[in-house]
Design a protein around this nucleic acid. Structure first.
Lengths: 157, 157
DNA sequence: TAGATCGGAGATCATTATAGTCTCCGATCA
DNA sequence: TGATCGGAGACTATAATGATCTCCGATCTA
Protein backbone atom coordinates (compact mmCIF):
# COMPACT_ATOMS: atom_id res chain seq x y z
CA UNK A 1 0.00 0.00 0.00
CA UNK A 2 1.42 3.33 -1.13
CA UNK A 3 4.71 1.58 -1.52
CA UNK A 4 7.55 2.98 -3.55
CA UNK A 5 9.28 0.56 -5.88
CA UNK A 6 12.61 -1.15 -5.38
CA UNK A 7 14.00 0.83 -8.28
CA UNK A 8 13.07 4.05 -6.54
CA UNK A 9 14.64 2.73 -3.37
CA UNK A 10 17.82 1.98 -5.24
CA UNK A 11 17.78 5.44 -6.80
CA UNK A 12 17.57 7.05 -3.38
CA UNK A 13 20.35 4.90 -1.98
CA UNK A 14 22.59 5.53 -4.95
CA UNK A 15 22.04 9.27 -4.92
CA UNK A 16 22.58 9.41 -1.21
CA UNK A 17 25.85 7.60 -1.74
CA UNK A 18 26.97 9.74 -4.63
CA UNK A 19 26.04 12.89 -2.78
CA UNK A 20 27.79 11.88 0.40
CA UNK A 21 31.04 11.41 -1.46
CA UNK A 22 31.39 15.12 -1.92
CA UNK A 23 29.24 16.29 0.90
CA UNK A 24 29.25 20.05 1.20
CA UNK A 25 32.25 20.44 -1.01
CA UNK A 26 31.82 20.05 -4.71
CA UNK A 27 35.54 20.50 -5.28
CA UNK A 28 36.18 17.16 -3.65
CA UNK A 29 33.75 15.42 -5.98
CA UNK A 30 34.74 11.97 -7.08
CA UNK A 31 33.16 9.86 -9.76
CA UNK A 32 31.38 6.80 -8.42
CA UNK A 33 30.75 3.84 -10.65
CA UNK A 34 27.84 1.47 -10.68
CA UNK A 35 29.75 -1.47 -9.34
CA UNK A 36 30.86 0.39 -6.23
CA UNK A 37 27.30 1.24 -5.31
CA UNK A 38 25.91 -2.16 -6.19
CA UNK A 39 28.39 -3.90 -3.93
CA UNK A 40 28.02 -1.47 -1.07
CA UNK A 41 24.25 -1.88 -0.88
CA UNK A 42 23.72 -5.36 -2.32
CA UNK A 43 21.85 -4.10 -5.34
CA UNK A 44 21.74 -6.17 -8.56
CA UNK A 45 24.34 -4.50 -10.73
CA UNK A 46 22.40 -4.35 -13.97
CA UNK A 47 19.23 -3.16 -12.37
CA UNK A 48 21.11 -0.40 -10.63
CA UNK A 49 22.67 0.47 -13.98
CA UNK A 50 19.21 1.06 -15.41
CA UNK A 51 18.29 3.24 -12.48
CA UNK A 52 21.40 5.35 -12.79
CA UNK A 53 20.86 5.72 -16.52
CA UNK A 54 17.39 7.05 -15.83
CA UNK A 55 18.72 9.50 -13.27
CA UNK A 56 21.33 10.60 -15.75
CA UNK A 57 18.73 11.12 -18.46
CA UNK A 58 16.66 13.29 -16.19
CA UNK A 59 19.71 15.38 -15.44
CA UNK A 60 20.30 14.75 -11.76
CA UNK A 61 23.65 13.10 -12.27
CA UNK A 62 26.16 13.31 -15.06
CA UNK A 63 27.85 10.27 -16.49
CA UNK A 64 31.43 9.76 -17.56
CA UNK A 65 32.31 6.94 -19.88
CA UNK A 66 35.42 4.88 -20.11
CA UNK A 67 37.86 3.64 -17.48
CA UNK A 68 37.73 5.65 -14.26
CA UNK A 69 34.29 6.71 -15.40
CA UNK A 70 31.14 6.80 -13.34
CA UNK A 71 28.64 9.28 -12.04
CA UNK A 72 28.66 12.68 -10.39
CA UNK A 73 25.89 14.84 -9.01
CA UNK A 74 24.88 17.25 -11.75
CA UNK A 75 23.77 19.85 -9.25
CA UNK A 76 23.82 20.52 -5.55
CA UNK A 77 22.07 18.09 -3.22
CA UNK A 78 20.02 21.03 -2.02
CA UNK A 79 18.48 21.37 -5.44
CA UNK A 80 17.43 17.75 -5.81
CA UNK A 81 14.10 16.93 -4.25
CA UNK A 82 12.78 13.51 -3.34
CA UNK A 83 9.84 14.13 -5.64
CA UNK A 84 12.17 14.72 -8.57
CA UNK A 85 14.04 11.52 -7.85
CA UNK A 86 10.93 9.40 -7.59
CA UNK A 87 9.40 10.91 -10.68
CA UNK A 88 12.44 10.36 -12.82
CA UNK A 89 12.25 6.67 -11.96
CA UNK A 90 8.55 5.99 -11.85
CA UNK A 91 7.03 8.75 -13.89
CA UNK A 92 4.62 11.35 -12.60
CA UNK A 93 3.34 10.34 -9.23
CA UNK A 94 -0.35 9.95 -8.81
CA UNK A 95 -2.39 8.41 -6.08
CA UNK A 96 -5.16 7.38 -8.44
CA UNK A 97 -5.44 6.34 -12.05
CA UNK A 98 -7.36 9.47 -12.89
CA UNK A 99 -4.65 11.76 -11.56
CA UNK A 100 -3.14 12.21 -14.95
CA UNK A 101 -6.01 11.44 -17.22
CA UNK A 102 -5.38 12.65 -20.70
CA UNK A 103 -7.92 14.08 -23.05
CA UNK A 104 -10.37 11.39 -23.98
CA UNK A 105 -9.46 9.05 -21.16
CA UNK A 106 -12.05 8.32 -18.56
CA UNK A 107 -12.24 5.83 -15.78
CA UNK A 108 -15.42 3.86 -15.51
CA UNK A 109 -16.35 5.64 -12.34
CA UNK A 110 -15.62 9.12 -13.60
CA UNK A 111 -19.19 10.13 -14.21
CA UNK A 112 -20.41 9.72 -10.69
CA UNK A 113 -17.09 9.66 -8.94
CA UNK A 114 -17.45 11.08 -5.48
CA UNK A 115 -13.89 10.88 -4.28
CA UNK A 116 -11.87 12.51 -7.02
CA UNK A 117 -11.60 15.95 -5.48
CA UNK A 118 -10.64 14.89 -1.97
CA UNK A 119 -8.13 12.40 -3.32
CA UNK A 120 -6.49 15.03 -5.46
CA UNK A 121 -6.06 17.12 -2.35
CA UNK A 122 -4.39 14.26 -0.56
CA UNK A 123 -2.16 13.78 -3.54
CA UNK A 124 -1.18 17.43 -3.54
CA UNK A 125 -0.22 17.22 0.09
CA UNK A 126 1.94 14.19 -0.47
CA UNK A 127 3.55 15.78 -3.46
CA UNK A 128 4.34 18.90 -1.48
CA UNK A 129 5.89 16.82 1.22
CA UNK A 130 8.16 15.04 -1.21
CA UNK A 131 8.95 18.20 -3.10
CA UNK A 132 10.00 20.03 0.03
CA UNK A 133 12.46 17.37 1.08
CA UNK A 134 15.80 17.39 -0.66
CA UNK A 135 18.65 14.99 -1.06
CA UNK A 136 20.54 17.31 1.26
CA UNK A 137 17.97 16.66 3.97
CA UNK A 138 18.51 12.95 3.59
CA UNK A 139 22.22 13.40 4.18
CA UNK A 140 21.60 15.00 7.54
CA UNK A 141 21.57 11.91 9.68
CA UNK A 142 24.38 10.10 7.96
CA UNK A 143 27.91 11.47 8.23
CA UNK A 144 29.91 12.03 5.07
CA UNK A 145 31.66 9.03 3.69
CA UNK A 146 35.37 9.55 3.57
CA UNK A 147 36.42 6.41 1.85
CA UNK A 148 38.68 6.64 -1.14
CA UNK A 149 38.89 3.04 -2.19
CA UNK A 150 35.81 1.12 -3.28
CA UNK A 151 36.71 -1.69 -0.93
CA UNK A 152 36.48 0.43 2.18
CA UNK A 153 33.16 0.24 4.00
CA UNK A 154 31.33 3.29 5.19
CA UNK A 155 32.40 4.00 8.73
CA UNK A 156 29.53 4.82 11.02
CA UNK A 157 30.10 7.50 13.56
CA UNK B 1 3.88 5.48 -8.20
CA UNK B 2 2.49 5.69 -4.71
CA UNK B 3 -0.77 4.61 -6.18
CA UNK B 4 -3.62 3.26 -4.13
CA UNK B 5 -5.33 0.16 -5.46
CA UNK B 6 -8.65 -0.06 -7.23
CA UNK B 7 -10.04 -1.96 -4.29
CA UNK B 8 -9.13 0.90 -2.01
CA UNK B 9 -10.72 3.29 -4.47
CA UNK B 10 -13.88 1.24 -4.43
CA UNK B 11 -13.86 1.19 -0.66
CA UNK B 12 -13.68 4.95 -0.52
CA UNK B 13 -16.44 5.38 -3.04
CA UNK B 14 -18.68 2.88 -1.33
CA UNK B 15 -18.16 4.40 2.10
CA UNK B 16 -18.71 7.85 0.75
CA UNK B 17 -21.96 6.63 -0.72
CA UNK B 18 -23.09 4.80 2.38
CA UNK B 19 -22.20 7.78 4.53
CA UNK B 20 -23.96 10.27 2.32
CA UNK B 21 -27.18 8.34 2.60
CA UNK B 22 -27.55 9.41 6.18
CA UNK B 23 -25.34 12.39 6.14
CA UNK B 24 -25.37 14.20 9.46
CA UNK B 25 -28.39 12.35 10.65
CA UNK B 26 -27.99 8.78 11.82
CA UNK B 27 -31.71 8.46 12.41
CA UNK B 28 -32.29 8.61 8.70
CA UNK B 29 -29.90 5.77 8.08
CA UNK B 30 -30.86 3.39 5.32
CA UNK B 31 -29.26 0.10 4.45
CA UNK B 32 -27.47 0.13 1.15
CA UNK B 33 -26.82 -3.08 -0.69
CA UNK B 34 -23.88 -4.03 -2.85
CA UNK B 35 -25.79 -3.96 -6.09
CA UNK B 36 -26.91 -0.38 -5.62
CA UNK B 37 -23.36 0.84 -5.17
CA UNK B 38 -21.96 -1.32 -7.94
CA UNK B 39 -24.42 0.07 -10.44
CA UNK B 40 -24.07 3.66 -9.35
CA UNK B 41 -20.30 3.69 -9.78
CA UNK B 42 -19.72 1.01 -12.40
CA UNK B 43 -17.87 -1.26 -10.03
CA UNK B 44 -17.74 -5.02 -10.68
CA UNK B 45 -20.33 -6.39 -8.30
CA UNK B 46 -18.38 -9.29 -6.91
CA UNK B 47 -15.23 -7.33 -6.41
CA UNK B 48 -17.13 -4.67 -4.55
CA UNK B 49 -18.68 -7.41 -2.44
CA UNK B 50 -15.21 -8.47 -1.33
CA UNK B 51 -14.34 -4.91 -0.46
CA UNK B 52 -17.47 -4.39 1.59
CA UNK B 53 -16.91 -7.66 3.39
CA UNK B 54 -13.46 -6.48 4.36
CA UNK B 55 -14.81 -3.18 5.60
CA UNK B 56 -17.43 -5.04 7.57
CA UNK B 57 -14.82 -7.30 9.12
CA UNK B 58 -12.78 -4.35 10.26
CA UNK B 59 -15.83 -2.85 11.88
CA UNK B 60 -16.45 0.29 9.84
CA UNK B 61 -19.78 -0.86 8.51
CA UNK B 62 -22.29 -3.38 9.76
CA UNK B 63 -23.96 -5.90 7.53
CA UNK B 64 -27.54 -7.11 7.46
CA UNK B 65 -28.39 -10.34 5.77
CA UNK B 66 -31.46 -11.41 3.94
CA UNK B 67 -33.90 -9.51 1.76
CA UNK B 68 -33.78 -5.75 2.33
CA UNK B 69 -30.35 -6.38 3.77
CA UNK B 70 -27.20 -4.41 3.08
CA UNK B 71 -24.72 -2.19 4.86
CA UNK B 72 -24.78 0.66 7.34
CA UNK B 73 -22.04 2.79 8.79
CA UNK B 74 -21.04 1.24 12.09
CA UNK B 75 -19.94 4.58 13.50
CA UNK B 76 -20.00 8.23 12.68
CA UNK B 77 -18.25 9.44 9.54
CA UNK B 78 -16.23 11.72 11.78
CA UNK B 79 -14.67 8.71 13.44
CA UNK B 80 -13.60 6.95 10.29
CA UNK B 81 -10.26 8.08 8.94
CA UNK B 82 -8.92 7.58 5.45
CA UNK B 83 -5.97 5.73 6.94
CA UNK B 84 -8.31 3.27 8.61
CA UNK B 85 -10.17 2.65 5.37
CA UNK B 86 -7.03 2.08 3.35
CA UNK B 87 -5.50 -0.16 5.95
CA UNK B 88 -8.53 -2.36 6.28
CA UNK B 89 -8.32 -3.03 2.54
CA UNK B 90 -4.61 -3.17 1.89
CA UNK B 91 -3.10 -3.96 5.25
CA UNK B 92 -0.73 -1.74 7.16
CA UNK B 93 0.54 0.98 4.92
CA UNK B 94 4.24 1.25 4.43
CA UNK B 95 6.29 3.19 1.97
CA UNK B 96 9.09 0.63 1.96
CA UNK B 97 9.37 -3.10 2.41
CA UNK B 98 11.28 -2.64 5.62
CA UNK B 99 8.56 -0.51 7.20
CA UNK B 100 7.05 -3.47 8.93
CA UNK B 101 9.93 -5.85 9.11
CA UNK B 102 9.27 -8.65 11.52
CA UNK B 103 11.80 -10.27 13.78
CA UNK B 104 14.29 -12.12 11.67
CA UNK B 105 13.39 -10.43 8.41
CA UNK B 106 15.97 -8.26 6.78
CA UNK B 107 16.20 -6.68 3.40
CA UNK B 108 19.41 -7.18 1.52
CA UNK B 109 20.29 -3.53 1.91
CA UNK B 110 19.57 -3.35 5.60
CA UNK B 111 23.13 -3.46 6.80
CA UNK B 112 24.34 -0.35 5.06
CA UNK B 113 20.99 1.20 4.27
CA UNK B 114 21.35 4.94 4.21
CA UNK B 115 17.77 5.93 3.53
CA UNK B 116 15.77 4.02 6.10
CA UNK B 117 15.49 6.79 8.65
CA UNK B 118 14.50 9.60 6.28
CA UNK B 119 12.01 7.36 4.53
CA UNK B 120 10.39 6.43 7.78
CA UNK B 121 9.91 10.11 8.45
CA UNK B 122 8.23 10.59 5.11
CA UNK B 123 6.03 7.64 5.86
CA UNK B 124 5.04 9.09 9.21
CA UNK B 125 4.03 12.32 7.56
CA UNK B 126 1.90 10.59 4.99
CA UNK B 127 0.30 8.45 7.65
CA UNK B 128 -0.51 11.47 9.73
CA UNK B 129 -2.06 13.14 6.75
CA UNK B 130 -4.31 10.18 6.05
CA UNK B 131 -5.12 9.70 9.68
CA UNK B 132 -6.22 13.30 10.14
CA UNK B 133 -8.65 13.19 7.26
CA UNK B 134 -11.98 11.54 7.92
CA UNK B 135 -14.81 10.21 5.84
CA UNK B 136 -16.73 13.24 7.03
CA UNK B 137 -14.18 15.49 5.37
CA UNK B 138 -14.69 13.66 2.10
CA UNK B 139 -18.39 14.36 2.19
CA UNK B 140 -17.72 17.99 1.52
CA UNK B 141 -19.51 19.26 4.58
CA UNK B 142 -16.45 20.51 6.39
CA UNK B 143 -13.19 21.37 4.67
CA UNK B 144 -10.33 18.97 5.28
CA UNK B 145 -7.81 19.82 7.92
CA UNK B 146 -4.16 20.58 7.22
CA UNK B 147 -4.83 19.97 3.56
CA UNK B 148 -3.77 22.89 1.48
CA UNK B 149 -3.59 22.75 -2.27
CA UNK B 150 -1.11 25.37 -3.45
CA UNK B 151 -0.34 23.58 -6.67
CA UNK B 152 -4.09 23.66 -7.24
CA UNK B 153 -4.61 21.10 -9.95
CA UNK B 154 -8.24 20.66 -10.72
CA UNK B 155 -9.94 22.15 -7.76
CA UNK B 156 -13.54 21.88 -8.62
CA UNK B 157 -16.68 22.98 -6.82
C1' DT C 1 46.00 1.53 -31.49
C1' DA C 2 44.33 -2.51 -29.01
C1' DG C 3 42.14 -3.86 -25.11
C1' DA C 4 40.12 -3.11 -20.70
C1' DT C 5 36.66 -0.39 -18.42
C1' DC C 6 33.04 2.25 -18.33
C1' DG C 7 27.90 3.75 -19.39
C1' DG C 8 23.65 3.31 -22.96
C1' DA C 9 20.03 0.69 -24.63
C1' DG C 10 17.03 -2.94 -25.92
C1' DA C 11 14.98 -7.48 -25.46
C1' DT C 12 13.74 -10.94 -22.47
C1' DC C 13 12.20 -13.70 -18.50
C1' DA C 14 10.40 -14.78 -13.75
C1' DT C 15 7.80 -13.49 -10.03
C1' DT C 16 4.41 -11.15 -7.77
C1' DA C 17 0.45 -8.14 -7.16
C1' DT C 18 -3.74 -6.79 -8.80
C1' DA C 19 -8.24 -7.07 -10.80
C1' DG C 20 -11.81 -9.64 -11.71
C1' DT C 21 -14.70 -14.12 -11.92
C1' DC C 22 -17.10 -18.30 -10.43
C1' DT C 23 -19.33 -21.20 -7.21
C1' DC C 24 -21.38 -22.57 -3.10
C1' DC C 25 -22.89 -21.52 1.53
C1' DG C 26 -25.80 -19.69 5.37
C1' DA C 27 -28.88 -16.08 7.12
C1' DT C 28 -33.14 -13.65 6.72
C1' DC C 29 -37.62 -12.37 5.61
C1' DA C 30 -42.00 -12.17 3.21
C1' DT D 1 -40.12 -22.28 1.06
C1' DG D 2 -37.93 -19.72 -2.09
C1' DA D 3 -36.10 -15.21 -3.43
C1' DT D 4 -32.75 -12.00 -1.73
C1' DC D 5 -29.19 -10.78 0.75
C1' DG D 6 -24.04 -11.13 2.60
C1' DG D 7 -19.78 -14.59 3.64
C1' DA D 8 -16.14 -17.09 1.91
C1' DG D 9 -13.02 -19.65 -0.84
C1' DA D 10 -10.90 -21.08 -5.06
C1' DC D 11 -9.67 -19.65 -9.36
C1' DT D 12 -8.03 -17.08 -13.67
C1' DA D 13 -6.16 -13.33 -16.43
C1' DT D 14 -3.47 -9.45 -16.84
C1' DA D 15 -0.29 -5.99 -15.55
C1' DA D 16 3.59 -4.32 -12.87
C1' DT D 17 7.79 -5.25 -11.01
C1' DG D 18 12.28 -7.09 -10.40
C1' DA D 19 15.96 -8.99 -12.48
C1' DT D 20 18.92 -10.81 -16.31
C1' DC D 21 21.26 -11.05 -20.79
C1' DT D 22 23.39 -9.22 -24.83
C1' DC D 23 25.41 -5.97 -27.70
C1' DC D 24 26.91 -1.31 -28.51
C1' DG D 25 29.74 2.96 -28.35
C1' DA D 26 32.73 6.06 -25.67
C1' DT D 27 36.99 6.68 -23.32
C1' DC D 28 41.17 6.00 -21.15
C1' DT D 29 45.76 3.99 -20.89
C1' DA D 30 49.44 1.03 -21.65
Amino acid sequence: MLKISKKADYALMALQHIASVHFGDMSHARVVNTKEIAEEYNIPLELLAKVLQALSKSGMIESHNGPKGGYLLARSAKEITIAQILESIEGPLGITDCSHEKEGEFCMQREHCNIRTPLLKVQDSIYQLLNNMTLQDMLGGTPPITIQSPTAQGVER
